[in-house]
Design a protein around this nucleic acid. Structure first.
Lengths: 127, 127
DNA sequence: TGCTAAGTTCGACTCAACTCGTACAAGCCT
DNA sequence: AGGCTTGTACGAGTTGAGTCGAACTTAGCA
């Protein structure tokens, strides 16, 4: 995975919200995020890839599905992005045709201190 | 869950191994522990309970299955303890009839800094 | 010797999750 | 209007995980 080399201290600080965003899609409130569900969401390699790319290769505030370069059917991607959103890991907004996502760094850090930073610092094995 | 109130700084420091222990049961080497598998192991509420109790209510170096007070069939417990051991979360040793477990704090902390501390600090919701 | 206790192994059942094709909806553009 | 793009909804097939009962193994002990 390409990595920009941004320091971890910057990764765990969520970008400020640009003004005039669409409303977020339905998601759990920060206090309703469950560790078991977050763990289950992050136990899938594809979803872990998505979250890591959002953290490490972030270019904008929000990113559409196409930006990830995932070679999977669209219905599979819908499934995985929804799993991440339902668990409270990402927030999604509808921009016209596109549905863009970012990691809920502030909410995750408030509930589970150190989790986002650990994921950002972790390097997946090659084999 | 009862909690002894030990400081987190003590929790993330694994107890020193007493001398004369039996060999550990087969387990992945520290460098082979996979984050996806650890996440999957911790996505089950019962296993999260086991790990938290091992971290927070520890009384000895190793604890047998009976110590946890889990009201499940023995074959179910075998399944869950094995899932934790296969993922590299706990180490198990055979003491006569008993199979005792402890969390591999040092190995987990080396691979995924902050994970154990986050789990120890986290409080499950009541509902 | 034989009982008991701790835990395993095996097989069966259930259920949730992953995968994907197909059909559909909703914007954007010419 | 018509076509293109982004993504959803639904359904089906498959796989894997959790659950448990029943039979077995092993160690300790009376």
């Amino acid at each position: 995975m390409p990595v920009t080399g941004r320091p971890v201290s910057e990764i765990v600080r969520e970008l400020p919200e640009p003004p005039g965003l669409p409303d977020p899609l339905p998601e759990p409130a920060a206090e309703d995020i469950r560790l078991e569900r977050v763990m289950a969401a992050l136990s899938d390699p594809l979803r872990l890839f998505i979250v890591r790319k959002l953290l490490l290769d972030r270019e904008e505030f929000d990113h559409p599905c196409g930006w990830f370069g995932l070679d999977r059917p669209k219905s599979s991607l819908t499934h995985h992005f929804r799993a991440l959103r339902d668990a409270g890991v990402i927030r999604q907004r509808q921009y016209g045709l596109e549905r863009r996502s970012h990691v809920r760094v502030n909410d995750l850090d408030a509930r589970f201190p150190g989790l986002v930073e650990m994921i950002a610092a972790w390097s997946p094995r090659e084999d």
